[in-house]
Simulated scan of single mutants.
Amino acid sequence: MNLLFDYTKELIGTGILLVVFISLRIITTKLVRRYAKSSHTLEHRTNLVIKYIHLFINILAFIALVLIWGVQTKDIFIALSSITTVVGVAMFAQWSILSNITSGIILFFSFPFKIGDVIRIHDKDFPFEGEIEDIGAFHVYLKTHDGEKVIYPNNLLLQKGISIMKNHFDDKEFID
């Protein structure tokens, strides 16, 4: 019973944090889904962005929980700086992965084309046209007029000039 009285503030703070945490996840999920519905964004891309936002909220909730239960601020900063250093060094070698994830999020919120559109990528070394078959977290899957499948990284898609073409791949005959 003394244990309950000794940690009353921490338990109340944890309860409030839990309510805020659950509410924040529900609200952000509804907002992203509403935005996706209004902009006609695909469901799997919406779920991917929601997953990223939930990860960010989880990290913030964990930090708040550590603060509520009395870990010293200087200890948190030491741990975070150590973790950031290790992750920074590890991610420096993996910058393209982070770049593709960030590009995927940017493409989600300001996406000028959709699945089924034919685009021309103005690349000096490898220009081509292709129909967008799928848009993933890291890559866009394209199909050329010759039937070749091209997997194009999201970060390059943001860096290159792109023209949205009229869908001239639809010259196939319809057979019932």
Rank of each mutant, 00 (worst) to 15 (best):
D134F: 06
H139C: 05
R25L: 09
H122S: 11
Y141E: 12
I121D: 06
E10Q: 08
I101H: 00
G116N: 13
I68G: 01
T144P: 05
D134H: 11
Y152K: 06
V89A: 12
L158E: 05
E131W: 10
T102M: 03
E129R: 09
L98S: 01
K114I: 00
T144W: 03
L156T: 14
I22E: 02
A64E: 07
Y141L: 14
W95P: 00
T144L: 04
K37Q: 07
S96R: 12
Y141P: 06
I164N: 06
I101P: 00
R45P: 01
R34Y: 11
D123F: 08
I59Y: 07
E129A: 02
Q159V: 02
I50A: 13
F128G: 03
I50Y: 04
M91F: 01
T85K: 05
S38R: 12
F138P: 07
K37V: 08
L4S: 13
G136H: 09
I135F: 08
L17T: 09
D75K: 01
L31T: 08
V89L: 14
F21T: 05
I76V: 03
W69G: 13
N167H: 11
A61D: 06
D125F: 09
L48P: 00
A36D: 14
D125L: 11
I78L: 12
Y35N: 06
N2D: 00
F111Y: 13
S96D: 15
T28G: 00
G13L: 05
T14S: 15
I121H: 01
V71L: 09
V19H: 03
S82G: 11
M91N: 01
G130C: 08
I164D: 09
S81I: 15
R120C: 10
L80C: 10
K9N: 14
E173M: 04
S99V: 00
I53E: 00
I50F: 06
G88K: 08
G130K: 03
F111G: 15
I57R: 02
T84R: 12
N100P: 04
H54E: 06
S39T: 15
T144K: 15
L98I: 03
D134Q: 13
G147Q: 04
I115F: 03
F138R: 07
L42P: 03
F56C: 10
H168S: 08
L142A: 10
I12T: 12
H40L: 13
N154C: 11
F77H: 12
K9H: 11
A36G: 07
D75C: 04
I26S: 13
G161M: 10
R120Y: 10
A93P: 07
Q159Y: 09
R120H: 11
D6S: 10
